[in-house]
């Protein structure tokens, strides 16, 4: 069993290598397709003497043939060097890793919010198929999936922050508090600091972005859970479970939901990519100091190394998550765990 697990893992990783090379190639192309010379972009608008330009071009290897440059870039990436921000002169990796926990925290909160509400709602809708609850949930689900979340976020601010004044508009925590950034996850750090004011401030900052970012996953999860449950509830083994004299909750949760979760988990895993896309918008609206906000700002500042390195890291992250989902799928579904 363990050996077959390893073989499965190995095969999956082997499949990733070409994707990874493709992704780095895309990132490489980004810099080379952007109008203007990268060196000129780097020195900014002050201008530069032609001799010095040629010198720098040689120094950075921009006079080499494309394939050699790509090879150099590839080596650089594998070494972990993602370049420097033109604006801050900080390494892209360093900036990314400082901002990344904020994005992860927001994304995890959003997906937990979506699962916590979406899974039970989908199950109830399936069990009460055709009821008013079912129709209501399906209507809300298709509306949620159609939601322009950048506008949804603005409306939430308009209602809860501006009109009702119960939630803050931006950031992760009120300026009144300072919490030692121990894990980088604000909620955890606040919890450890045992400062109740900081905790409630962090939560009140989290709640709106979490709902906004979780809306589309919530819609997808509720819908997927429902349809998956409907399918599973018709299976012979559910009838067997009922023929054993099990109670309805036990039949639904232990026998049906366990099987229905297999495709749902896959969908949740695959929605990580969309979630990170949504994080770009959510972070922009709520001035959430995360990777998405950073990337949008990098465009305005024409900070192309940041855009390049950041996109690459996010793509790699998506690849890793997809791999994780595959492994989890194998774990959940005994049939493919040969």
């Amino acid at each position: 069993m363990v050996r077959s697990m390893f073989r499965f893992l190995f095969r999956r990783i082997a499949l990733i290598v070409p994707t990874f090379i493709g992704v780095t190639f895309m990132a490489f192309l980004l810099i080379h397709l952007v109008p203007g010379d990268p060196i000129e972009a780097r020195v900014g608008e002050r201008g530069i003497a032609p001799e010095r330009l040629a010198e720098l071009r040689h120094e950075f290897g921009y006079d080499l043939p494309m394939w050699q440059q790509f090879f150099k870039y590839e080596v650089q990436i594998v070494k972990g060097d993602l370049g420097m921000s033109v604006v801050t002169q900080q390494s892209v990796w360093h900036e990314f890793i400082t901002l990344f926990p904020a994005t992860v925290e927001l994304s995890i909160a959003a997906i937990l919010f979506a699962m916590l509400i979406g899974l039970p709602m989908g199950v109830i809708a399936a069990v009460r198929r055709g009821s008013a609850f079912d129709y209501g949930l399906m209507g809300m689900s298709v509306t949620g999936a159609s939601m322009p979340i950048f506008w949804w976020g603005l409306m939430m601010i308009l209602i809860f922050s501006v009109t009702l004044g119960i939630t803050p508009v931006s950031g992760r925590i009120s300026d009144a508090f300072f919490v030692e950034p121990w894990s980088g996850f604000m909620l955890i750090d606040c919890y450890w600091s045992e400062d109740e004011g900081a905790c409630s401030s962090a939560w009140s900052h989290m709640i709106l972005p979490m709902i906004v970012l979780g809306t589309i996953p919530l819609a997808i999860i509720a819908r997927m859970t429902r349809s998956s449950m409907l399918e599973v509830l018709n299976e012979d083994y559910v009838r067997t479970a009922r023929a054993k004299g099990l109670s309805t909750p036990r039949v639904v949760i232990v026998h049906a939901l366990r099987n229905a979760l297999i495709p749902v988990v896959t969908v949740i895993g695959l929605s990580v990519s969309g979630l990170l896309g949504g994080a770009i918008l959510t972070e922009t609206i709520f001035s959430w100091p995360g990777v998405g906000h950073w990337l949008v700002e990098s465009i305005a500042r024409r900070d192309y190394p940041v855009l390049q390195g950041g996109s690459l890291l996010i793509a790699v992250l998506v690849i890793m998550v997809n791999l994780g989902v595959d492994l989890l799928y194998g774990f959940l579904n005994p049939r493919i765990r040969r």
Partner: peptide, 9 residues
């Protein structure tokens, strides 16, 4: 149907 009447999980 014995193959589908037992829970695969």
């Amino acid at each position: 149907e014995p193959m589908t009447s037992l829970n695969p999980c």
